[in-house]
């Protein structure tokens, strides 16, 4: 048995300041998340400058808490992993500079992790990954289908051409006067309604694994607008259910088709929208019927966290993929393979 590997993960790509210590890439020792949702609520969305201000206030506190909870000193760590991108640039560079300073102070290897690779590797904290693997990454900033032949090998086979799914949820929620973030509210409303307004399913060209949510969003807005002009009462529950049905049907359908075409031995979902009950149930049922193993991490590992960054960072560390002091936050960082 080789020596255990302990990696400190740091994540500040959007509105959560997070730090975590993970053992061997699979076991969470500590996982701290300081959420800023309350600060951004009154603005109806994340304000980048305010997010950056919070990160600099929280960063050392959050890292210290993760270290203390784990009962570890810096010299017991093997590496520092940090989200290098994509994300909000001003937010990213707080985590990156803290990680660089920490790694420099204690002469530890530094690993720069892609945020989406992190979301995928969140699964490994609950269940070992089986390849070939298909990952559905679905959140406020991303909607992607990623095929993996093995560790660190990423092929994006489909992605959104306009809004991310979570973005569409937030926009529709706003027109229904639901508070920010809107996703959970729409999910909740949808479940209280037996009837649903029929909105279009946006499948794009035949065979495409890409997504588009802006057309769906527009038809919801049009529906609301027309109802208002005719002086009709809108039933928010039916609108929420109709919108959610359309998203869930398309996402489940495309994920299923990709899993079959790529002969995936395991399908995983990740990202904040993977916490959506309607989507979880639909994916669960569909893959159970096909007999393909399917896994969604528990809620705290679906939303942004640093354990997932440490988990992915551990595999990169084992492959010797180190960064250096010139690492910078990369807001538009592409997901590239490590092999």
């Amino acid at each position: 048995m080789s020596k255990d590997i302990y990696v400190l993960g740091i994540e500040t790509s959007c509105d959560e300041t997070a730090a975590s210590i993970v053992k061997n890439g699979t076991e969470i020792i500590s996982n701290i998340v300081a959420s800023q949702i309350e600060s951004h609520k009154r603005f109806g969305g994340v304000v980048p400058e305010i997010a950056s201000r919070h990160h600099v206030e929280q960063i050392t506190l959050v890292i210290e808490e993760a270290m203390q909870l784990a009962g570890m000193e810096p010299d017991q760590l093997d590496a520092v992993a940090v989200t290098e991108g994509p994300g909000l640039v001003g937010a990213l560079l707080i985590g990156v500079n803290a990680a660089k300073a920490f790694a420099f102070a204690h002469q530890l290897p530094l690993v720069g992790v892609h945020h989406i690779a992190g979301h995928i590797y969140a699964n490994r904290l609950e269940q070992e990954m089986e390849f070939p693997l298909l990952a559905l990454v679905i959140s406020g900033g991303h909607t992607e289908l990623i095929y993996m032949k093995e560790h660190g090998d990423f092929t994006v086979i489909g992605e959104t051409r306009d809004d991310a799914a979570g973005e569409a949820y937030d926009k529709v929620a706003r027109t229904l006067n639901l508070p920010y973030p809107g996703g959970p509210h729409i999910d909740r409303l949808a479940h209280t309604s037996d009837e649903a307004v029929m909105f279009p399913r946006i499948w794009l060209e035949e065979g495409s694994y890409d997504f588009s949510f802006s057309g769906l969003k527009s038809s919801v807005l049009n529906y609301m607008h027309n109802a208002a002009q005719r002086g009709e009462q809108v039933v928010p529950e039916r609108v929420a259910a109709g919108f959610q049905n359309s998203v869930v049907e398309v996402v489940t359908g495309k994920t299923m088709r990709a899993a079959e075409e790529y002969k995936a031995r395991q399908v995983i979902a990740a990202g904040g929208v993977a916490a959506n009950k309607g989507l979880r149930n639909s994916l669960d049922a569909a893959f159970k019927q096909k007999g393909i193993p399917f896994h969604i991490p528990s809620l705290p590992l679906c939303t942004d966290n640093a354990a997932m960054i440490a988990a992915a960072g551990t595999v990169m560390y084992e492959k010797g993929l180190y960064g250096n002091m010139a690492m910078n936050g990369r807001p538009g960082m592409p997901l590239t393979s490590w092999i």
């Binding site: 400058e49 050392t60 890292i63």
Partner: peptide
């Protein structure tokens, strides 16, 4: 510069705290 100040503070705080 907001960003500039934050970079210096982040580096300084992390060095001071962790050392």
């Amino acid at each position: 510069s907001y960003t500039g100040v934050r970079i210096g503070l982040t580096i300084a705080k992390t060095l001071a705290w962790s050392l």
